[in-house]
Design a binder for these strands. Structure first.
Lengths: 236, 236
DNA sequence: GTCTATACAACGATAGAC
DNA sequence: GTCTATCGTTGTATAGAC
């Protein structure tokens, strides 16, 4: 069974690695030419964005806020992005793509429906624990986007949900699962996973760890959809 | 079994009724003295707030937007609230209190855990369907509040969750339910219910009705927590 | 590459005519 | 009771010094 410690050491991305990718992918619009410097400042910028927008939202964050918290001047900030909206877009897309890739990699290591589902749930939760600012940011800011960007965010959401739906589908066909409605089961499962990073304060207060939350969700869901299929429940 | 049609006719509040209460409760800070006029304009204001903030969020809504959409001038708006923040607060609190009262009333009509739980789930979903703008508004804007208001919003959230936790607790004690962890079960159940009004576009696309979503959640949850307690599953 | 200083639009809120 | 006109502030973004 995948535990959080192992995941964190072997699979987890760190902010530096992600910022390196961001700098390389946006080489055109970033005026600073030295990679090392650009990465270092991009990290300061993202850390500041997450800190501020966790408190009052990205929209309420002013570039004066960002300048003060990141330690870079207003002018310097614009060497790393051309507008506040571009900054938001860069962060959002990077988070979505990263998450999808890692979850799919982990799922591919299992074949049977139940272990696959358990792996998808655990990986998604562990990842959201490490990249919580990214997940939270992507979710909360998606609501107030202009039409075109909003469509993209909706597609991202459905792509994530599809990972879970495909596993449930596989289980239905093999006779391991009985969901009632595969689509709705995938939807509600995703809602449970999102609650972990959206309502973090609640679980912190309860003293719930990401591992115990993961185990609860795995069992809660499997108990429901394996009704009458006892044989598959031994090694999730 | 409580169906949506019945609920809508017998229990559902309408915007006019809620606005009457709002006007009466804020008589002090509303400069307009004629009740009928004040209620009429308050309705126009709230309808406009919901329409605009559904698209781009309350924070991004300017009072010029609100003036244009509601048909009232900037000056006239300030006869109904003393600041943008006060307007947000009025809407938020009214929605939370209304929702809590109606769900508790409905739950009180049943005694056994399973029917109580089913009633709470259905009522909460039906209510969020009718008052979707209020629910959505309260949820999305709570994240970007100043510390003091945020605490209040968190307390509201926990109060709602408590309704479900109490029912699950009752079921655990009577031997009807076996949740694994009552606290987490209440949390994740709430997450499923919130998904209905937060991701409305998704369910609209799937063609899911509020009744079919309610039935899915009721069965999904009961299947999981009634594991091994078959006798209680006949009349949820 | 980063800074300070500033442009200019748009914000919430108010005063005073009607 | 509602309007128009306007206040001072704050927003994003840029220009030019260093």
């Amino acid at each position: 069974m995948l535990d959080f410690q192992t995941f964190q050491k072997q699979r987890a991305p760190d902010l530096e690695g992600i910022c390196e990718e961001i700098v390389l992918e946006n080489r055109g619009s970033i005026a600073v030419k030295k990679d090392r410097l650009a990465v270092k400042n991009m990290m300061r910028i993202l850390e500041a964005v997450f800190a501020i927008s966790r408190d009052k939202g990205f929209h309420a964050m002013t570039l004066r806020d960002l300048s003060r918290t990141s330690g870079l001047s207003m002018g310097a900030l614009y060497s790393y992005f051309s507008s506040k909206e571009e900054l938001r877009s860069i962060i959002h897309r990077k988070g979505v793509l990263f998450a999808k890739k890692i979850v799919l990699d982990e799922v591919a290591e299992h074949e049977e429906p139940a272990p696959r589902l358990a792996a998808a749930i655990r990986t998604h939760l562990y990842l959201s624990e490490i990249l919580r600012p990214w997940f939270y940011f992507a979710y909360m800011e998606a609501a107030s986007l202009p039409a075109r960007e909003k469509r993209q965010a909706m597609d991202d959401e459905r792509a994530t949900e599809r990972i879970f739906r495909d596993i449930l589908d596989q289980g239905e066909r093999s006779g391991d699962f009985r969901c009632g409605d595969v689509d709705l089961a995938a939807s509600t499962l995703k809602a449970m996973l999102q609650d972990w990073y959206l309502k973090r304060w609640k679980y912190k207060r309860k003293g719930t760890t990401v591992e115990s939350y993961a185990e609860f969700v795995v069992r809660f869901v499997l108990r429901s959809i394996q009704q009458g299929n006892e044989e598959g429940r031994s090694k999730p």
